[in-house]
Design a binder for these strands. Structure first.
Length: 624
RNA sequence: GCCGCCGUGGCUUAGCUGGUAGAGCGGGUGAUUCGUAAUCACCAGGUCGCGGGUUCAAAUCCCGCCGGCGGCUCCA
């Protein structure tokens, strides 16, 4: 409940027009003039109850006494709050307040009317006071929900710079004319400016391409993935996992839910500004993990680690991580409540080793994204750092900035309020100029202590390590989002949209010119599939034109037409999407072997999974 | 979470100053067997997001809820 108390020479009001929620009032109460009142403007809020009303009454009584007012005007004033209760409750509480104050002279202005009023405020020091009253329940709830980190963040002050060619300039002074995307990103980060009111293109695409879709039967932000989507996701998952394992990480698996009462976890939760899903068990309450930190840190806490083992890397692909993001923030594959994130933690013995690993993992992230199909032109780099760390490590940050030779957005904090001192992110800027983080690495200086993680040094003494958090690609779903948005932006420039060949659910579509060539087409497809290339056959009774069109709208990279000419020549006529324009297709004659070689070369080193659907289109369901 | 806009067959949508739903795609059947971006015909398919209310009558008006999008907020 919000109260605004005004001690006045007089107050007069007149009810003009009833709203839908207006209470019935006698003619006599519709207008009023009261001399020397204490006017209490009141807004009843959600969660308010009788106790709150009582508190309000004693508050009003106290102030009335203090200023020597004998008359009180209770004036419903909705504009004090953006969290109003129902009108019914408001009227009930107002009437109750009126009654409890009846030892004074009380006037209650009618609820739910447009009213004109005049007031003459006395202007002495106590003549204007405001009060905010809340039910105990609501207070406790707020206390629970607002973690320390969320509160701290509100207080944190950021300073923004651009680091370029080893020089740090403030954002205001930086000349963005050659870096329009960085400008968009900086605007997005600093001023939070948005220029759009459209459905993001990838949402339409993920549905149309039968990759993913909303699942209304679940909570918002939990998607369903169709066979093609599952394939794409699964390939990305396998690839990023492989990258991390090759980098030297040991893959582990940890639970997805943890006790809320566990003392260590509890303190960690308080440092992490995220909202959790809470699961009620028989006796205890659990929360769903929002990253793999919990399981991995607990594992490391119990492990015996010596200096010889460092840097020690462990990795898990979280399927899933859960974050109860606010409703208004959820969009397509960009921001979810359940998502898959590669999460690698590296235990290092000191800051020197931490920096070295940070640099390595920066490079690892660049490589990982590049292989996925996202080049440095597709994202912008942000570094978040405490002022102290920056001052002591200017040279190091300069080296970092030289890896990609791109200007970097720096956010500097005058004090540390997160668990890390340094962090980078690669931020994808989408078709609507919105930015979201993909890869990220952080140097954590807090959690080794909190989780009691230690290693034995050369001298036999237990020592505290630092920990790096690394997500080499960012959330897998977000990678798909970025690829779809990128394809859309390409299409706007006249380039046929497509996924990288290794991620394309169907890599080759074989189209027989008529039923007479269906068997040959099936043979070709079989040959391709045996050589680990995803090929299917459009065996539907449709015209050639129709089949070509459909193959194109599915973004299939290679479309091979087979008819009399091809059978005679022993070659396929292949339309190569990557080399085509939207207006004119690039068509090449090649043998099956040549096609295989070409695709093999393109997909070298990348994971493969077989076609997730029947080879014949006629046998394939449509999921939408 | 707050505010705004939206929600019609599997998909895209017309109808919305109230008078009990119309199309295209997709699907089925038949014809057609085709040389690079939508072959033709016929048929089936709709609790108009859900729940209340107003009305003789609601897809259409009102209220609540759910879902989507956008803004605010926030972002590991």
């Amino acid at each position: 409940m919000k109260l605004l108390l005004v001690h006045a020479d007089y107050m007069e009001y007149e009810a003009k027009k009833a709203t839908k929620i207006a209470e019935d009032v006698d003619e006599g109460r519709k207008s009023m003039r009261v001399e020397e009142p204490l006017v209490a403007f009141v807004a009843v809020e959600k969660g308010d109850d009788e106790k709150v009303a009582e508190k309000a009454v004693s508050e009003i009584r106290a102030v009335a006494k203090k200023v020597g007012a004998e008359r009180v005007v209770l004036y419903p004033y909705a504009h004090l709050s953006s969290n109003l209760s129902s009108p019914e409750l408001a009227i009930r509480l107002l009437k109750m307040m009126e009654e409890k104050l009846s030892d004074l002279e009380v006037y209650r202005a009618p609820f739910g009317w447009y009213k004109a009023f005049k007031i003459s405020c006395k202007g002495h020091p106590l003549s204007e006071l405001s009060r905010e009253l809340r039910s105990q329940q609501v207070e406790e709830l707020d206390e629970k929900e607002l973690t320390q980190a969320l509160r701290d963040e509100e207080k944190a002050k950021s300073y923004w710079y651009i680091l370029h060619d080893g020089k740090l300039v403030s954002v205001e002074e930086f000349d963005f004319s050659n870096y329009p995307k960085l400008k968009k990103f900086a605007d997005y980060e600093i001023s939070k400016r948005r220029a759009v009111d459209r459905v993001p293109p990838h949402v339409e695409l993920m549905k149309r391409l039968q990759i993913a879709d909303y699942e209304e039967a679940s909570d918002s932000g939990h998607m369903r993935y169709y066979p093609k989507g599952r394939l794409v996701k699964s390939l990305l998952e396998e690839f990023v996992t492989r990258k991390c394992v090759e980098y030297g990480a040991m893959e582990v698996e940890t639970p997805i839910m943890y006790s809320r009462d566990h003392p260590t976890l509890r303190r960690y939760l308080e440092r992490f500004p995220a909202r959790q899903y809470i699961i009620k068990g028989d006796k205890r309450e659990f929360f769903l993990r929002f990253a793999a930190c919990f399981g991995q840190f607990l594992m490391c806490s119990d492990a015996v680690i010596t200096y010889r083992n460092l840097p020690l890397k462990i990795y898990e692909l979280t399927r899933y991580s859960f974050r109860k993001e606010q409703r208004g923030e959820l969009v397509g594959l960009r921001r979810l409540r359940a998502f898959t994130m590669p999460d690698m933690h590296t235990i290092v013995k000191d800051m020197e080793q931490a920096k070295k690993e940070f640099m390595n993992q920066y490079r690892l992230s660049v490589e990982t994204l590049r292989a996925i199909g996202l080049t440095p032109e597709d994202y912008e780099v942000a570094i978040r750092v405490t002022k102290d760390f920056y001052e002591e490590n200017k040279e190091f940050l300069k080296e970092i900035s030289e890896i990609l030779k791109k200007p970097i957005l720096i956010e500097m904090w005058d004090r540390r309020f997160f668990y890390f001192v340094l962090k980078f992110e690669f931020n994808f800027v989408d078709a609507l100029d919105k930015a979201s983080a993909l890869s990220t690495v952080q140097i954590d200086v807090e959690n080794a202590e909190r989780y009691d993680i230690s290693y034995v040094g050369k001298d036999g003494e237990k020592k505290r390590p630092y920990i790096l958090h690394c997500s080499a690609s960012g959330a897998i779903e977000r990678c798909i989002y970025a690829l779809l948005e990128k394809a859309y932006m390409n299409a706007e420039r006249g380039k046929p949209p497509m996924l990288p060949v290794w991620l394309s659910p169907v890599q080759v579509r074989v189209i027989p010119i008529s039923e007479n060539f269906l068997d040959t087409a099936l043979e070709v497809a079989e040959k391709l599939n045996k050589r680990l290339i995803r090929a299917d056959v459009d065996d539907r009774d449709e015209t050639l034109n129709k089949k070509v069109r459909d193959a194109s709208t599915e973004w299939i990279p290679y479309v091979a037409v087979i008819g009399k000419k091809e059978v005679e020549e022993g070659k396929l006529t292949v339309t190569i999407r990557a080399e085509s324009e939207l207006e004119k297709q690039k068509r090449v004659k090649m043998s099956v072997e040549e096609l295989i070689d070409r695709i093999k070369k393109e997909c070298e080193g990348m994971p493969f999974k077989p076609l997730p659907l029947p080879v014949k289109l006629s046998e394939r369901p449509s999921f939408r």
